[in-house]
Design a protein around this nucleic acid. Structure first.
Length: 945
RNA sequence: GCCGAGUUGGCGGAAUGGUAGACGCGACGGUCUCAAAAACCGUUGUCCGAAAGGGCGUGCGGGUUCGAGUCCCGCACUCGGCACCA
């Protein structure tokens, strides 16, 4: 690396000079607390100023031990540029960075090394802080935290208790304290689902009734059990292949007692409020699809032989006349009830699978289905099933239709049972073909249509006459009208009603892991959960000899989860006085998923040291509250990758809404504006053995790529150690300095687009900063080159159009074009040899958000005392935006045939005359009649002949 | 299959319906140097032409318009999400 002494130009802006400047300013910013943002109240209280507040957040990092590559800081640089720009606009900017520090990698490391996960995690945080500090990010260091800090865990647990101690009031459409539910039962305003009154219930029954309504509850239900990881997983953590997102182990559906959060109560609000936030449409759509709201009908099918009925959900009640059989999911709770004693006479062989009785066939089928992973269920799309031996009554026409069980019907969606309409549904069609079931079309198909038809058309075969005239007849109606008619009829006849179902399931919240927040829950002798009182929070993790859950063979579906905390006997047994004297309780031994901390961390930035509340209401209202009535409030700008579209971003919205309902926050949404940055990707190279070779040693020539003289194949994708294509920020700091690195990342392209890293191209950004430096500083002597000359008109024009453009680009986060405009200004000043203060001061100020260290250095060399952090961002003077002359384009039949330099305020007539006089235009017209002349003075004349 | 985003030079990318390719990389030529590197200056969509100038050109096929990368219709391909969701 060159040093200042190695070249004649001792004061050239080289990497080492940049490094000196950058470290010096970083130390000074720290010492002066330059980026500390004042709060309205509390320990960080100060003068919040007259400007707007602006709260920026990055999706906080997991402190991985692997270190950073150049892709990681992209979003952090972008938010830093926005924050620095907003400060120069006079805003009070809150920007800090915490660490999402619970999670599996640290626990796996701990299991392997025996070292406590906290030790490793904290050293990773230290290392990451060091790497990021070198970038010069303008964060308020007082507001940084990690989700593993005892103080943070305390409030995570406190929020859990808030959720545990509340229920969802469907009438008022909001969460309310559980005490109000108890009061409603006591007063008789509400009764238990079975109609029992509060007075009739015993103490335990009362508790079970209350517990069943909580927003955080224990429930035995089908969950994703992953024996390979030894834990259960949320739906969102299972891939579409039915494997764990972490570790890629098989996942099985098992009925287990686990903690859940009633996120489904918020389905409608989570969908509807997407309209009120400024988020990318793609993310909104992903959330809508994930919640999966569908409108339809619930239809009751009586099974007379069994003396009971089952409900199905359908989005197409208009096709009810085409329902020729019904299917229950194999796990449906009524399967046994519907399983007949013996096969009805004439049952086709295919329906029985050769079993002697329905019970044998059903239990064999259920056993096979239970042993399948979700992946196996998905891979095999051949329709299979068995007949239960029972028939159900189609309510619209009284037809007896056979009831099957089949694994193409899912237990978790709708009612876990369907009416099968082979004429209108491809899956039902396939099943009907396989089992010889009748197919009745109920919608007129287009000419020549084969197979199931799900499209528009008039209803056919859809009438049933009854003696009393109450029969349903929808023939001829369109799909929408038919749906409405059927729902009305079902409601009148007590056979069903219109309803809405959701794909979203309640959030499985417990994990059998060590490295997570313990639940603030104990169990009493009745085995019922009780919240640990606030003053005993946080419940801290005990030290244990072994951090691993009991894991199993990945394919061992019958294994049972066993959390590591269950082995810490001294911790599990605890004596507490919960108001009725000291008693022994048993602690909950599951831990929270690593989504817990990130579900509320935006709140803690606003009041990070508050010991009495998650955040003071004044601070929350100032930083997050709605600016005007009807707004949701929330973080002003949240930047991160799209990979959290349905995980973190859905959970965080849910928790925030609960806290809003309970009156703890004034904002209805956590993140008002969301921006997904793209990824920086990289090329990787493989040799003829398909082994990756070091990418930085590959040469490109003759249109091919070579490593040590041998041809290699190029691939495009992620940066990764195994791909041998990692480029680290540290390498960039050493070779160019942080400012060059920042400018390069911002100039590569639009922030939301992914693009390949190209180390060779970074030098362009360095050359740009060197040119800026050379405008102000003599490279040989280090003397200032700045003078007080007046600006010529052309320079004034370039300067002010640049100011105008850069401001617009900053407002809309178009940093790539902002950099391009600053380069153009710099190139202009270099070309005309202008180093006048009137030009270079605004240049330095505009550069400050992007290359803050260099800008601070030049600002002080311009004679200013303090930091330019709060110096005003330049404002364009409209008087200088208009150019002295503009190039007018003359088109003939839409093709450019001439250009004229004209005054900006030229009249249409004058311009037309000039255009028609242009020699090349005259030649193009070639004597033809002019039919029309379109004039857009002063930029364009279009001549039609 | 459904939903969403995209397709512009050798590469990353610019372009309120009005000069396509700003800015940067690379490449080519030059200055400086004993030489090289760095730095600086110039050229660079493509074809015809000595030049002036002209033809072609934003994935493909149509359309609207004086004028389309941009708007409309259809298609292909790439990427992302969901997927036996009734």
């Amino acid at each position: 690396m060159s040093t200042p002494d190695a070249t004649p130009a001792s004061y050239r802006y080289t990497s080492s000079l940049a490094g000196d400047i950058e470290r010096r300013w970083q130390d000074r910013w720290d010492a002066e607390g330059t980026f500390e943002a004042p709060n309205p109240v509390g320990d960080l209280a100060g003068d919040t100023g007259s400007g707007e507040k602006f709260f920026i957040m990055d999706m906080f990092p997991y402190p991985s031990g692997a270190g950073l590559h150049v892709g990681h800081p992209l979003g952090y640089i972008a938010t830093d540029v926005v924050g620095r720009y907003r400060r120069m606009r006079g805003d009070n900017v809150l920007h800090a960075l915490g660490y999402d520090a619970f999670g599996l990698p640290a626990e796996i490391h701990a299991v392997q090394t025996g070292e406590h996960p906290r030790t490793n995690t904290e050293s990773n945080i230290t290392n990451m802080r060091r790497q990021l500090r070198r970038l010069g990010l303008a964060h308020d260091p007082r507001r940084s935290f990690a989700t593993i800090d005892a103080d943070f865990v305390r409030w995570t647990q406190w929020i859990f208790i808030q959720i545990f101690e509340s229920w969802y009031d469907e009438e008022q459409d909001r969460a309310r304290p559980i005490s109000e539910l108890r009061a409603a039962y006591e007063s008789g305003e509400l009764t238990a689902p079975d109609g029992a009154s509060w007075a009739e219930l015993g103490p335990l029954e009362r508790r079970i009734l209350i517990d069943s309504r909580r927003l955080a509850y224990v429930d035995e239900s089908p969950v994703n059990w992953c024996p390979g990881l030894g834990t259960v997983l949320a739906n969102e953590e299972v891939t579409s292949e039915g494997r764990s997102e972490r570790g890629n182990y098989p996942v099985f559906t098992r009925n287990l007692r686990q903690w859940k959060m009633r996120i489904t109560a918020y389905s409608d609000r989570l969908i509807d409020d997407l309209e009120r936030v400024d988020w990318p449409d793609s993310v909104k759509n992903m959330q809508r699809n994930w919640i999966g709201r569908s409108h339809g009908a619930r239809v009751r099918f009586e099974v007379e032989a069994a003396g009971t009925s089952f409900d199905v959900f359908t989005t197409r009640p208009d096709t009810l006349f085409g329902a020729t059989y019904a299917v229950l999911a194999p796990e449906h709770e009524l399967v046994e009830t519907f399983t007949a004693e013996a096969w009805p006479t004439g049952t086709p062989h295919a329906w029985t699978t050769g079993a002697g009785t329905p019970a044998e066939a059903v239990s064999a089928y259920r056993a096979v289905a239970a042993a399948k992973t979700d992946l196996e269920r998905q891979e095999n799309k051949d329709k299979t099933g068995v007949f239960t031996g029972s028939y159900a009554t189609n309510p619209v026409n009284g037809e007896q239709i056979p009831v099957f069980i089949a694994d193409y019907v899912l237990t978790g969606y709708g009612t876990g049972a369907i009416m099968a309409v082979p004429g209108g549904d491809q899956r039902d069609w396939e099943f009907a073909e396989a089992y010889g079931l009748p197919i009745i079309p109920t919608v007129q198909t287009p000419e020549g249509w084969e197979g199931a038809y799900a499209g528009e058309g008039p209803a056919i075969n859809s009438a049933h006459a009854t003696n009393d005239g109450t029969g349903l007849d929808i023939n001829g109606l369109g799909v929408e009208d038919a749906k409405a008619a059927v729902i009305t009829w079902l409601q009148q006849h007590g056979a069903g009603e219109g309803t809405t179902t959701y794909r979203l399931r309640d959030w499985l919240f417990s994990r059998q892991r060590y490295w997570g927040e313990p639940f603030p829950i104990v169990y009493d002798d009745f085995d019922q959960p009780i919240a640990v009182p606030d003053h005993l929070l946080p419940v801290e993790l005990p030290d244990v000899p072994d951090y691993s859950p009991k894991t199993y063979e990945p394919d061992d579906a019958d294994s049972e989860p066993q959390p590591p905390l269950a082995r810490a006997d001294d911790w599990v047994r605890v004596t507490l006085d919960l108001g009725d004297g000291p008693r022994t309780y048993r602690r909950e031994t599951n831990t929270m998923p690593n989504w817990a901390g990130s579900s509320w961390y935006e709140l803690r930035y606003t009041d990070p040291h508050n010991a009495d509340r998650i955040t003071d209401p004044e601070n929350e209202k100032y930083w997050l509250g709605p600016r005007t009535d009807g707004e949701t409030g929330g973080v002003d700008l949240y930047v991160g990758g799209v990979e959290h579209a349905v995980l973190h971003l859905l959970y965080a919205r849910f928790w925030h809404k609960v806290l809003f309902d309970l009156g703890h926050v004034t904002s209805e949404e956590p993140f008002q504006k969301l921006f997904n940055q793209g990824y920086i990707q990289a090329y990787a190279f493989k040799d003829e053995r398909h082994v990756y070779v070091e990418a930085d040693r590959v040469e490109e020539r003759d249109g091919g790529f070579f490593f040590e003289g041998r041809p290699v194949i190029r691939e495009y994708g992620k940066m990764g150690k195994s791909l041998k294509n990692i480029v680290t920020p540290d390498e960039m700091y050493d070779a160019y300095g942080a400012d060059t690195f920042r400018v390069y990342e911002m100039s590569m392209g639009p922030l939301d687009v992914s693009r390949p890293w190209d180390t060779r191209a970074v030098v362009g950004s360095q050359r740009f900063l060197q040119r800026v430096w050379r405008l102000l500083v003599d490279e040989d002597s280090g003397e200032s080159l700045v003078d007080d000359a007046e600006l010529d008109p052309a320079t004034l024009h370039v300067l002010h159009t640049t100011i105008d453009g850069v401001r617009g680009d900053m407002e809309h986060m178009r940093f790539n074009t902002a950099v391009a405009k600053l380069i153009e200004l710099t190139n202009h000043l270099t070309k005309v040899g202008v180093s006048a203060r009137a030009a270079v001061e605004p240049l330095v100020l505009m550069l400050a958000p992007l290359a803050p260290h260099l800008a601070e250095e030049l600002w002080s060399r311009l004679g200013h005392e303090g930091s330019l952090t709060h110096a005003p961002f330049p404002v364009a003077d409209p008087a200088h935006l208009a150019a002295d002359s503009v190039t007018c384009v003359v088109q003939v039949l839409g093709k450019v045939r001439g250009k004229i330099e004209v005054s900006p305020d030229i009249s249409d007539e004058e311009l037309t005359a000039l255009a028609l006089a242009e020699p090349n235009v005259v030649r193009s017209i070639d004597g033809r009649d002019i039919r029309k002349v379109i004039v857009r003075a002063p930029k364009l004349v279009s001549i039609v002949v």
